[in-house]
Design a protein around this nucleic acid. Sequence first.
DNA 1: GCCATATGGATTGCATACAATATCCAGATT
DNA 2: AATCTGGATATTGTATGCAATCCATATGGC
Lengths: 220, 220
Amino acid sequence: MATFKTRAQYVADDLRERILGGEFKGGSQLRQDALAKDYDVSRIPVREALLTLESEGLVEFHAHRGAFTTELSVAAIRELFDLRVLLETYVLRYAIPNLTTADLDHAASILRQYDAALDSGSQIDNWSDYNFAFHHALYAPSKLPETLAMIGQLNTKSGRYIRMQLVYTREIEKAEAEHRQLLELARQGDVDRTCQLLETHIKDAAEGIAAVLEKSLRNA
Amino acid sequence: MATFKTRAQYVADDLRERILGGEFKGGSQLRQDALAKDYDVSRIPVREALLTLESEGLVEFHAHRGAFTTELSVAAIRELFDLRVLLETYVLRYAIPNLTTADLDHAASILRQYDAALDSGSQIDNWSDYNFAFHHALYAPSKLPETLAMIGQLNTKSGRYIRMQLVYTREIEKAEAEHRQLLELARQGDVDRTCQLLETHIKDAAEGIAAVLEKSLRNA
DNA sequence: GCCATATGGATTGCATACAATATCCAGATT
DNA sequence: AATCTGGATATTGTATGCAATCCATATGGC
């Protein structure tokens, strides 16, 4: 991989972060010309970037009308998180027996970075990346690349709402405590208990997001 | 939706069929200029079509080197089919309790079209479409659109190999008989038995494809 | 003889320019 | 007043042309 980034890829990567960061709310329109000026490129790489983001579910194209950021219903979010439970417990069952001490150390080091970032009052986008990195570290030994790719898809697709929740709630500490438990249970090789904790861990997050969304919908 | 197709969409749709039909073997390169001539368009819509197909897993881009058709390893195919088992039994459990007689009739009519197509010695691409249509008809009442979308992704991603198998084997009749059983069990509302049959139905297909692939690999 | 390097040609990535479609607003009609 | 119609404007979709990168072949050094 490690190929030098093309302009379209650069735009896609940056715009993805902006969308996930919540810069564009609702189903707001993304004007190609404006984005082209933002990045000082022509509309061609912008269009290609938007197509990439469309495939990731962050953007929707309507022919001859342009691109809009996608807005997920509460039902859709619940569905996506149910899928996460299904897929992530599935890979975790395969991963745990393969976990080496190096894998466990790696996951533990990610948790330590959490702490550092949290203590320094760091930003949410960092936390979100760390969150995914930790989960991924636990799953990677499953050696199921296609499945991991789908999990990644689910994560980016719902990423905007994950970060949204973090702004409104103080769930980070709870999530981090659960991460420590997950790591410990995985270290002990207790597959069933680890998967069960993972399930509640994900479902709690989903409920938290749903609550935030329903509240903001009532206010709107 | 029903929006008039843009050129890029047209190229994507047609090229998808060509790839799924096996016109390009292995990881062969797709030259933008050649495709542009094929469709009498410029390279811009061709590039956009290739990006779309990349997101569907049919094509891989390498920066400044172009697009290649993806080649799946036997392990990857097994993994994709295991995912199909996981996701499709999952939705089927939700769908069966919601099945109306109209849904059942619809699925049955698709099976009848099979017969007609088979008797007329019709082509494989038709069969593949019918196959997906039947499965989808069973799953749709689950009312889980995100999950159905992922199942669709898995289907197109592995579609080339599904069709490949059909060329080399005579599994169609067996699959069709299983479809009838599936429909009958679903009509009876026997969730567990239907899901179990679905599981073996998919796994058998996977083994058939794996056998064909491993054989062709030995010969190569 | 083999490996490294350079040079020409081919191909991709991108900018510019134009065509096709949608959106907006004034004026007409009921 | 509300709705409809038509044309101006804005925005998207696509063609063309140029720049950047890669690939192949040839050339030189060891």
